[in-house]
Design a protein around this nucleic acid. Structure first.
Lengths: 109, 109
DNA sequence: TCTTTACAATCGAATATGCTAATATACATG
DNA sequence: CATGTATATTAGCATATTCGATTGTAAAGA
């Protein structure tokens, strides 16, 4: 595999590598949502969510559609959801280790 | 999905989000390899590869086994490989866009 | 024991990422 | 046209990542 393709893959994973962006994709699992709806559901700063949406857009993980005043987002390819599902399966499989990792997280707070 | 689990997922993607680490996982696709072998195959600095191996270890994406002087690495769970395969399928599917992205990459150099 | 081999860990500098606050844009409505 | 609403972009600062250089460590061999 050429280096440029590895770089693309890495950039793709990088785009997924943030809790907020994962949360956004979870929201979009059932279908498209307006940016404002996502912001409300996540209960975060407007600018912050908008920046994360920009990251997902830049990597074409989500696409957007303008309708009047609003912008509706959706996941471009269900394969993305499949990747997230695989991850879910992975974490479920290694539940024991995940729990100890969670404990570490708790402990370090 | 709880915030902590999202954080775990994000950290997992973060661990995959580097060309060198993807290259390492590709090398390990067929089975275990000694650290030195990986370093040779990638043709990179020893310390650098070792650091990337440490990242993959920290997230338990790879496991290691010491044998005398050497340390052998392998991918812990084939599900990881599946994720990479899904990504490959994804990029193949969107080959056209990938190519234009590649052109952008080229242009910006 | 002394040296070499094979890795891992640490340090410091450069770069990238993420956040809040502020500002801009674009459409809608009075 | 003036104002409000929805969303995007920019600036500036704090934190995190990555790299090469160096140092540490454990096993192997002379």
């Amino acid at each position: 595999m050429p280096e440029t393709l590895r770089r693309l893959k890495a950039e793709f994973f990088q785009a997924l590598a943030h809790p907020t962006r994962i949360a956004i994709l979870e929201q979009l699992r059932e279908g498209e949502l307006a940016a404002g709806t996502i912001i409300d559901k996540l209960g975060m700063e407007q600018a912050n969510v908008s920046q994360h949406l920009a990251v997902l857009r830049a990597k074409q993980i989500v696409v957007n559609r303008k309708a009047g005043n609003q912008v509706f987002y959706s996941v471009r390819d269900p394969l993305i959801i499949q990747v997230l599902d695989l991850m879910r399966a992975y974490f479920q499989k290694h539940l024991t280790e995940v729990l100890s990792l969670l404990e570490e997280v708790e402990a370090s707070r």
